[in-house]
Amino acid sequence: MAFFIETLFGGLMVGMLYALVALGFVLIFKASGVFNFAQGAMVLFAALAMARLAEWIPQWTGISNPVFANVAAFAGAGVLMFVLAACIERLVLRHLVNQEGATLLMATLGIAYFLDGLGQTLFGSNIYQINIGMPKDPVFLFESVFEGGVLINQEDLIAACIAAALVLALSLFFQKTATGRALRAVADDHQAAQSIGIPLSRIWVIVWCVAGVVALVAGMIWGSKLGVQFSLATVALRALPVVILGGLTSVPGAIFGGLLIGVGEKLSEVYLGPFVGGGIEIWFAYVLALVVLLVRPQGLFGEKIIDRV
């Protein structure tokens, strides 16, 4: 039983990180109605910015305190993501208002390749580390309940709590604030939103800024776990089934989808992997997403779209 709970906890913690990355996709889609293929590049760019700034700030300031360096690096990377969001809106999105979804999709692909190149030019292409002080040693919990206790990775637990707090804050933002409702209105119909006085350019800047912060937090966590390297951009591919499963327009769907896939990957690999030679964790999420697409194309929490002619 203790081993099952360890596997379950591990899946839930990884699932929260999947949900955090998937949330970036959902935010952009809710505001622009287009799937943002640049989300993985944004995660990588933000992680590179924080890792390199954490190295450079002590050299620039002469202050070697690691806490100061990390806080300043996070703030600097956040400002950089805000500037990037404003540039994307002014140079790209502003010229594509009311264009077809395929046009916007291709624009995000171009942004992704641009960010990959810009990140390498500004910050280099080596493997960098982000050390934000999260403990990496596992601990045993519930020793009085289960013999030997349940082994939990402290870093995964803290990362999952950070992701959960950010997801909760964004959920409240969308549901309880006027800006959040404006974002949903823009996603439904650009022209209608503009006709009632919603400034489309400002809304897009806001949502790309928020998505940039989400990418920064995701990049910080994944960079701390895996190191900052260009393969980090592929983490976004792991979040694609989460978005498909939960629905492109649903923040709760991204949370539920991430948790479901995280737990499903771990349990299937541990309990079914030995019977099929292993490797289930690699393709489980994609097969599950395919099954959901066949039964409910809009996802478990997505809105069903009915076209009347």
Rank of each mutant, 00 (worst) to 15 (best):
F4T: 08
T7W: 07
G11I: 02
G11P: 01
Y18I: 05
L20N: 07
G24H: 05
G33R: 03
F35Q: 04
Q39S: 05
L44V: 08
L44P: 01
A54H: 03
E55S: 02
G62N: 05
I63D: 06
S64T: 12
F74T: 00
G76V: 04
G78I: 09
A86F: 15
C87E: 11
I88W: 06
L96G: 03
V97N: 10
V97K: 13
T108N: 07
G110F: 12
G110P: 03
A112E: 02
G117P: 03
L122I: 14
P138K: 00
L141C: 09
L141N: 04
E143Y: 11
S144N: 13
E147L: 08
G149V: 02
Q154R: 07
D156W: 11
A159P: 00
A160S: 06
C161S: 10
C161R: 10
K176L: 08
R184A: 09
A187M: 10
A193E: 03
I196L: 08
I196M: 13
I198H: 00
P199S: 09
I203V: 14
V213C: 14
V214A: 03
L216E: 11
G219V: 09
I221P: 01
W222L: 15
K225G: 08
K225C: 12
A233R: 11
E265G: 04
G273W: 09
F275S: 08
F284E: 12
L290F: 15
L293K: 02
L293D: 05
